[in-house]
Write a protein that binds this DNA or RNA. Structure first.
Lengths: 224, 224
DNA sequence: AGTGTAAAAAATGAATTCATTATTTTAAAT
DNA sequence: ATTTAAAATAATGAATTCATTTTTTACACT
């Protein structure tokens, strides 16, 4: 049996939750472009629902920092700006650090083994310069660490921050140097995990995220 | 000029925001007791509003982890349990740690000075065993560090976790030993801050929160 | 052309209404 | 007396309606 929401198990979803899920994905995938205004009528027609559950979903997404509500002036998709990323990354890093520390206390050998595998496949993707596969395994590794931490609150806060950050992947592409550093950092992450050295994993993860932000900052400055 | 919401400046609030504010306070102050079911009709009558904005507010509070929505079965105030606290504290600690690190980079001498003052007054309260005054200054210190970190995202996530934790203050009272340790930790916090040693402040704050949780855990086990 | 104003249209905020699901009450049956 | 079934009540989920605010459009005036 799998868990559905981390919150409660069997629960079917209410309409506003489903809408929030759909909209969240649209925003993260930049189907709704950053800065764009959200038109309630248009969305209700698109989804065939009334405004009530849609507006409830918007409240949720606002809490997640994906949209911004302005009284009497509707909602806009939060723009992806460098300063926003600089705000989010340190928080995300803190959470991943905490996840690493908790994971080291709780993770099973079996789970370490599958992270090891994902890491190997990620390295293959790196060698082949297959960015999309790389991303996939990269995300799987971080996801598995988070899951091993076994803390729904942590996971939930992480998810909402990660959503905000993900949209930046369309903004700048990974430099070769950064990619290599990331790979090295990942080796250290795995090592710390295998040693079950929580403190070390924590600092490594935080450094990893800091490196990611630094690379992004650089890339965005250059792009401009 | 003061900031109102960290989000936007002049904005008057929408009804659902005001309701969320009121309800949040009621929950944190245990005016709505943990585990209690929320009756929409009763609350709408109490506040003189319709169900629509109330229900929007409930979505927000659910995101904050203060209430739990169950489809077709209404909402309950999330119970304060030890396991909930054990889930929240590590996350809160990570965020405070990050706040400490950021604060060290940005805090002004003037702000350090006012923390120093608050600390002195806290010590007085401690000597006088004046718990309520102690709490007040304790909260002020943590609040000032968070503010110095100057990161609205961090602040917002912190606030929502802190809300969940605050309700525990009615559950167990501070042991003398814990109180003393807390004072010592606070001295170290101040020292790290004065040295602008981010790494040190971060670990100290995290230890501080871990200590708080340990004490709570102990107290709750004894109480039972 | 550009600016300002008034009317019209559109969008949002919130109350109300309707439909469905839970819960409670009542009554019957063992 | 206790349990079960059915009916009544209450509560929730979502659509609709109404009120207000914002935005757009049209048009006069400089």
């Amino acid at each position: 049996m799998k868990d559905q929401t981390a919150q409660n198990s069997i629960a079917r979803k209410s309409l506003h939750e489903e809408l929030a899920d759909i909209l969240r994905e649209m925003i993260i995938d930049c189907k709704l472009t950053p800065g764009e205004r959200i038109n309630e009528k248009q969305l209700t027609e698109q989804f065939g629902v009334s405004r009530t559950p849609l507006r409830e979903a918007l409240k949720v997404l606002s809490k997640e920092g994906l949209i911004q509500l302005n009284v009497n002036r509707g909602a806009i998709v939060v723009p992806v700006t460098l300063s926003d990323l600089q705000e989010v990354f340190p928080v995300l890093a803190a959470l991943e650090g905490a996840a690493g520390e908790l994971a080291c206390e709780k993770i099973s050998d079996r789970d370490i083994q599958s992270i090891r595998k994902a890491q190997a496949q990620m390295e293959q993707a790196y060698s082949a310069r297959d960015l999309s596969t790389y991303f996939q395994y990269n995300q799987e590794i971080h996801g598995r660490i988070l899951k091993a931490a076994d803390n729904p609150t942590l996971a939930s806060h992480h998810r909402s921050l990660y959503g905000r950050v993900q949209r930046a992947r369309f903004l700048a592409n990974l430099s070769d140097e950064r990619w290599q550093s990331a790979m090295e950092e990942h080796n250290e992450i795995l090592a710390a995990l295998e040693a079950r050295d929580g403190a070390r994993l924590s600092v490594t993860l935080r450094r990893h995220l800091a490196g990611k932000l630094a690379a992004l900052t650089l890339a965005l400055h250059e792009a401009k």
